[in-house]
Structures are given as C-alpha cells and as structure tokens.
Design a protein around this nucleic acid. Structure first.
Lengths: 179, 179
DNA sequence: ATTATCTATAGATCTATAGATAATGC
DNA sequence: ATTATCTATAGATCTATAGATAATGC
C-alpha cells in the first residue's frame, strides 16, 4: 500500500488544479509537479487520471452561517461577491465546466447535483418533496457565478459589492420566501 | 482563393460541433467529417483550429418577439424551456463552456459578453449606462441554462413547462421591471 | 525483503504541413 | 495553368506501463 500522505497530497493538488481549469486542461504532469512527485507516482497511486478526478471532486459549497442575522439569500450571494472581490476561484462558476469536461459527465452531473442541491435544501430549509425552491436558488447562484466570473460581467469596478448583494440577494431571498 | 461554399460548409459544421461540445472535445477530423471534406482541407481553408473556432462563434440569442403579448422575462424563459422540452442544445448552457475551453478565453469572453449583453439590453429596453438590469437578466438566464441542462435539474419530468415559465419568468421580469 | 519513487518509453491522438492528384477554366 | 482537394506523415503532447533504484523495516 502506498503512503497515505502521498495520496492526500496528490488528491489535494488534483482538487486545486481541476477546480481551476477543469479536467482536460490539467495533465498528470501538472498534478505531479504541484504535489511534488513524478507523473508515474501519481498514476501508480491513483490508477488513472479519471480515478484521480473522481477522488478530487470538490466538497460542495461551504454554508456555515456563523453569527449573522442576514437573510440566507443575501448570505449566499455575499460569499460569491466576496470571492470576486478577493480574486479567488469561484466554485459556482466551475460546476458547469467540471461536469462538461469530466471523463464521465453523467457521473459528475449526478455527484454535483446531489451535493449542491442537498446542501442548499438543508440551508434554506426546503422540505418540499420536489425541492423546487432549492433548484431555483441553485440556478440563480450558478448564474451569478457564471455571469460575474466566466463572462466577466459585474466586475468589482462596475458593480459595488453591497449594492450587488442587496439586489441579487433580494432576488434569491425572494425564491426562498416563495415568490 | 478557396471555394466560398466549402468555407461556409466548414464553418457551419464547426459551429454545430463546437456549440455542442466546446473547443477541445471537437477535432479537425470531426469538423471535416461533418462538412464532408478531409482534415487537410479544413486546415487549408481555415488556417488553424483556433481561427476556425473564431469564425464559428455562435450568433447569440435569438430574441425575435413575433406576435405575443407575454412579458419579455417570460418570453426569454419560454425559449429555454422549449429547447429543454424538445431536447435541443441550449446556448445559454454552453456559454461558460465555450469561453473556458476557448484557445483564447479573454477574446471569447469579450465576444460573448458584447453579443449577449447588447442584445438583451436592446430587447428589454435597458437604457442605463451601466446596464445593470441587463447583466442581472443575463445571469439568471445563464443560471437556468446551466441548472436545467448541464446539471440536469428541472427536467421535463420534474418541472412542468408552464409552471416553470411562470415562476422563473416572473423572477426575470422582476429584474426588468426594477425589483 | 518490502515499500516508495523514479526514469524511460510505448502507444495513442491530435494539429499542421508537404507534396501529389484531380477538376476546372482559358 | 490554376484551383480544389486528398494522402501521407512529421512533430508535439499526453496517459499509462515496465522496469530500475533508493529508502525503510525487520
């Protein structure tokens, strides 16, 4: 059996790189370099690039609501705007790319759907069987991620943070409150 | 000079294939096969794969409003839902993928932004200098495309068409009307 | 002895190009 | 003669594997 620390380092490197660039744009060589091993080591430990990808799937959105009385809709938007302001990678913008680019898109789709939908449902307290409101909220957040980051609309220069949070947050909160 | 019909056939094939699969997943061989020529012919006529891609950029959303008194927001959503119901490709879902996968993402981003933003601005009659409402509308439509098609939420089985148009359409129309 | 890791490379795939051949116009 | 198109292939890149070497534990 291979070293567990090695395995973890490789998966962490994979998660970072895949999460920024998708599947095909990242090579085994890239992951190996970031993890500090040879490409052969990555292959030996993970078996194949596809298995590395599966093991490197992102954990889903962080929805910790520590000490704020802000409505959930605004909180969700605030996180996205904060990442924009700090130039950090935007998971909501990468979801589509990670699914489309995956070695098995059907599997990736199901993984993301389950992860994102269930977490948001729990967060907004959606108890309906069809989770309609949750799905609509996920759509609007995917849209904000794609629009603000992938398309580069609503940059920090053109859309002031608090104003954007207020406006788009109200939209998301409207869905949560049942339109 | 090469035959113009040949060039058109190649670009049409490119537009179809890139529009379904993005840049990297489509090979010159694929485009050549669909257009009915050899790969070498495609290269000779277009120069490079990147130039073919640029020439194959999709035209942007069709926003023809022939004879309906439905609000614009609902119309925009209706088109997306109709494509879902007919199993057609969804341009709004491909935008992110086409940008991310492009040989020059910055150029692709600017192209898409200009095309989509200006058309929607015109359609919804947004005359404000920052086009804030337009950008928010684009976000929500990108989100619906990604959510319904790339993530496979809101399939025809789980979200009835008219109900979805009513609900998400109202959301989009709310932005147009100024929240 | 066994485990961890590396070097070297086979085999597949893809873009791009060189050079040959077929079709067309004068 | 020129234009349109093809065959063949060079060169680059990538995953995956085979086999060698270095480190570790007994």
């Amino acid at each position: 059996m291979t070293d567990n620390a090695t395995r973890t380092a490789i998966i962490d490197a994979g998660r970072e790189l895949f999460g920024e660039r998708g599947y095909n744009a990242v090579t085994i060589k890239d992951v190996a370099a970031r993890a500090g091993f040879s490409p052969a080591m990555v292959m030996k430990v993970m078996g194949s690039k596809a298995e590395l990808y599966t093991a490197s799937a992102p954990p889903g959105p962080n929805l910790d609501d520590s000490g704020t009385d802000e409505p959930v809709g605004h909180q969700l938007v605030r996180r996205i705007v904060a990442r924009r302001d700090h130039g950090e990678a935007e998971p909501w913008a990468m979801v589509s790319i990670l699914i489309h680019d995956a070695p098995d898109p059907d599997v990736a789709r199901a993984t993301f759907r389950d992860r994102y939908v269930s977490r948001i449902a729990e967060r907004i307290g959606d108890g309906t069987p069809d989770l309609r409101r949750t799905k609509l909220v996920v759509c609007t957040l995917l849209g904000l991620g794609a629009g603000a980051r992938t398309l580069g609309m609503l940059g920090p220069d053109e859309a002031e943070s608090e104003e954007l949070i207020r406006q788009y947050g109200a939209l998301v909160q409207g869905i949560i409150d049942g339109v």
